[in-house]
Amino acid sequence: MTSPKLLEVKNLRVEFPTRRGTLVAVDDISLDISAGEVLGVVGESGAGKSMTGTAIIGLLEPPGRIAAGEIRLEGRRIDNLPYHEMRKIRGRQIGAIFQDPLTSLNPLYRVGDQLVETILTHLPMSHAQARDRAVKLLEDVGIPSAAERINAYPHQFSGGMRQRVVIALALAAEPKLIIADEPTTALDVSIQAQIIQLLKRLCRENGTAVMLVTHDMGVIAETADRVAVMYAGRIAEIGPVQDVIKRPHHPYTVGLMGAIPAMGHKTERLTQIDGSMPRLNAIPKGCAFNPRCPKVFDRCRVERPDPMPAGRSQAACWLVKEPAHV
């Protein structure tokens, strides 16, 4: 690709020191996002997908820390910035949407005031201009009679409407990148579809790139351009979303796709991956997936695979190098 990368993450490693030893929540992952691109990050709970997003916006909770690697936004390193400089970047250049809209909104302030405050912090505008922009933003995210609702408090909105307000808040300062962590998980099915459509439309219109962190492959399939599948703190497979879903290379991705109950053709049994993801304090040697892998061979148990080119994707699996074992 020739287009400059908006976000580059290289060999990122996030550690949590505990009294029983250091847990590695994110282990040596590299990914990038181009301007205007939607990158899906999918994985099961504990795979490290949320931790990756949190590390990028610099909101890791102590004692968690970035132990190695670097994060660059438009070529500038942001992983080692002091707190107040990172705060300027958050909101202005990177917006965030979290699973629970209530945690992103201050219950004691009117939504309009929160929007205006965010706009004034980051954009050179007068108060009146900021207010107009806030109304415009609420209209954009589909809040009916925005001019009046701007004076309402968060609890006066329903769950779906609240998540729309959060999206408006994330977009307020026209960031170049939005980290959306499970933005639809807390919502009902019919509302999910509305929010996904909205996010897609706004990002297309504004040219905003999105890192969409979710456990729901369906949401990724509808929204993302590329997808990274994470397992036990590492990227198992990353590539164009069509390829990963239709032609997965990593046995974990294959299993994950088979495990999703499909509509249209009823099967007696779902494909299942036996066992469960290892806990962070018991990640096996070699490939972390090897104890559950149906195609495991000797090399998988001793040597850890790094992502290697497989078709248009990259997969961290020795089968790519040694197709004889397939």
């Binding site: 329903s158 769950g159 779906g160 409407m161 009902d188 099915v189 019919s190 509302i191 999910q192 579809a193 509305q194 996904i196 459509q197 729901d216 492959m217 369906g218 949401v219 399939a221 509808e222 979303v241 069509q242 879903i245 796709m257 999703i260 499909a262 509509m263």
Partner: peptide, 24 residues
């Protein structure tokens, strides 16, 4: 019909989705 329409489409057949407006 609305619920069926709202199921995220894994096959990405480009089915046009019409999310129903409003909430419960």
């Amino acid at each position: 019909r609305m619920l069926l329409d709202a199921i995220p489409d894994l096959d990405m057949t480009g089915r046009s989705r019409t999310p129903v407006a409003g909430e419960v």
